[in-house]
Amino acid sequence: MSKEEKKVNRRDFLFTASYTVGAVGLGAVIWPMIDQMNPDKAQQALATTEVDISSIEPGKSITVLWRGKPIFIKKRTSEEIAEARAVKLDDLPDPQKDEDRVKEGKDEWLVMLGVCTHLGCVPLKDKGDFNGWFCPCHGSHYDVSGRIRKGPAPTNMEIPKFEFVNSNTIKIG
């Protein structure tokens, strides 16, 4: 009896060892096949872009392309800033203060990803019920701070990583 048991154990060990090595080997082959689909070095190299913002008038905005996506750069008027800050956080589906969406001391500059957080369309400016942006695809309304107010989009429009190189230039990414 004990002899048989020993035989079975030895076999079990061999099976387990073979399956384990096989699984590791398979994983090592599959991972490169999956990872090759992630953004390549050429795509990653496009990660930063510098924009001259000196010619933007108050109340106007420009759209630039960063990583294949539009970035809205808006120089807001003081009324627009006041309007954005007067909103109660309880009225927001994705509560976020306007102050947290801009750089301190540069409150007039709203720099955000011009991509609707629902399914990725580009919202239209100066449209919608909240004096901000409106996405024509599925009807999401954003306010003057780019925060979602109404419609199917789950979150506010994203603020990318950016910094002021000098007072006339910003670097996105």
């Binding site: 990583r67 294949g68 990725g120």
Partner: peptide, 27 residues
């Protein structure tokens, strides 16, 4: 853009999956 963004609705890994499908940061 719209159809691939459907996958971004998946909690936690949605954005990584979308980027993986695109092979870039947009279509």
């Amino acid at each position: 853009t719209v159809i691939t963004n459907l996958f971004s609705a998946i909690p936690l890994v949605g954005d990584s999956i979308t980027t993986w499908l695109w092979g870039a940061y947009s279509v």
